[in-house]
Design a protein around this nucleic acid. Sequence first.
DNA 1: GTGAAAGCGCTAACAC
DNA 2: GTGTTAGCGCTTTCAC
Lengths: 338, 338
Amino acid sequence: MMKRTKNSLTIRDVAEACEVSISTVSRVLNEKADVSSETYEKVRRVIAEMGYTSSLAATSMRSRRTNVIGVLVVDLGDPFSLELFKGIGKAIYGTEYDLIVYCSGRIAATAQSGWERWHLSRLDGSIADGVLVVTPTTEDLTAISPLVAVDPHEHNIFPAVLSANREGAIAVMEYLISLGHRRIGFIAGRQGLVSSNRRQQGYIDALEQAGLPVDPALIQPGDYTRETGFRCTQNLLTLPDPPTAIFAANDQSALGVIDAACEAGWHIPGDLSVVGFDNTPQAARSMPGLTTVDQSVSEMGYIATTMLIKLMQGKSLDEPVCKVPTQLVIRDSCQCIA
Amino acid sequence: MMKRTKNSLTIRDVAEACEVSISTVSRVLNEKADVSSETYEKVRRVIAEMGYTSSLAATSMRSRRTNVIGVLVVDLGDPFSLELFKGIGKAIYGTEYDLIVYCSGRIAATAQSGWERWHLSRLDGSIADGVLVVTPTTEDLTAISPLVAVDPHEHNIFPAVLSANREGAIAVMEYLISLGHRRIGFIAGRQGLVSSNRRQQGYIDALEQAGLPVDPALIQPGDYTRETGFRCTQNLLTLPDPPTAIFAANDQSALGVIDAACEAGWHIPGDLSVVGFDNTPQAARSMPGLTTVDQSVSEMGYIATTMLIKLMQGKSLDEPVCKVPTQLVIRDSCQCIA
DNA sequence: GTGAAAGCGCTAACAC
DNA sequence: GTGTTAGCGCTTTCAC
């Protein structure tokens, strides 16, 4: 095994250089009151000169206060997490907190349910003293530090930030229905994802609420990709009785809808109204004629982080569960059916 | 200060539950050879039952081996880092490594030069045993673990992944010049950023190499945003002698170019050839008629991580510096000047 | 105001 | 094979 040859500096090196004891240096590091200003200055200066930094590991172990926020994600690269990071980064900017995004490459540990639990306990009570968990299942999680769940499947004891998937979908449908549309196609998201299910539920609920029939042929099994959106739209447009409007479960599929409609010679929004659910207000923004429901995922990250910081400061939350609203963004209004 | 009341499990709890010593549990945890299979099984079972996880902090402190890759970024939310994460995530997926992205909210520590150094020493030699540093200045950095720099300003002793900003820009210019263009506008990126400077340098170098004059009026001070790209293009198009082609330093400005050209009634690529430098192959992709040079930032992340893992495994690198090539993606070929 | 000493949870000699 | 023991770098009583 590697030997003690950690050539990095320790508190001991600083102490020796200052000719004071280790505890004095520690006091300075932690801004304790009872250090003579003379000693204080000297230690500070030496620390700066040597470029010493206390070891995160050692500090974490000894004291509960690390000022580190841990963020647990399954996949560092998925669009949802990425979008979330924007908001999280914004939220800690200028604060005294540090951020640690933790993500494991071990699929074995990750694939089986319970990875959250495993990784959580690695951060929580260790180097982080507040945790943001991005996972559908917060069920059997236990934490000793404050924890905020981001868009959990079902919210339980933990404070959480929820997205308004169903509500947003209903808003879309009410808008389209108010324009007179009766046959509205739906392109679902990736099967099994809560977001997709909830959006589809909103689609169905809105139809039923309006007393409109739910035609299974109008519901296409998408997967959040542009290509599938394209194919699904082709299916819809070649129906004997095609829809007058299409609601796509995300921005990418919405682009696919437009691709297919254009190729088939349909005019948007003249012949077909298109609305997309948009998590990352970007891709869809560049398409003219597309109405979207924006669910600002980055704002979810921002809000979640704000909540967590509050908890870490010992304050209590006004609302333990915060639902981030969606916004219907009408660029060119959709076609009106007389 | 908070007391010892860490109600989280320790190795001691496991040992007691198994009625073995702490070291035996440690041996099991670290897959050491000399444990009877009987004991091994029992300990494993108890660990699973209790849901015990070793403390990252304690493990890091005692052994140098943590299997944790640290990634140092200034801003968790900026597009470059985000794009990088995609590649990094992909690279560790399925490996035995864990990832920790570290980012500080303390602007004081961040703003002044030397933040890298400070944060580096926090990770390196502490919880991470390999570090990826995303920063322009790797100058006075020292590390005791393997370190790979991502797109550093100037590369020095550390292995690094470099982007081919200048080379990509030259490729664009050679392409446009080969089509017969003589007056090519350039919309620069955010002032002060290396990426922008390098791209502009490529623009100038290519012109000089081709024996073409460098007209300052054709170089517009952009800032990587669509809006500024729009205004810069208006400036270019209203020139007494407007360019026949425009090269935008990134995808967003390229979109701005198209916006402005369309508004002014110019046809693309009929009246004006447009090429954009693209870091995040997404926004520009949705625009028809736009040719881009793709610099896959996510691939830089992937490559950097691969290099780092190799180093962490004690292997040596074939090439200490890897320049990730750009690719000219011609969607509809640009206008040809007779 | 400052130092000595006892651990935090864990690993790695070293004994048996 | 397994237990005992000495720390890793730090914080925190408790003396002085």
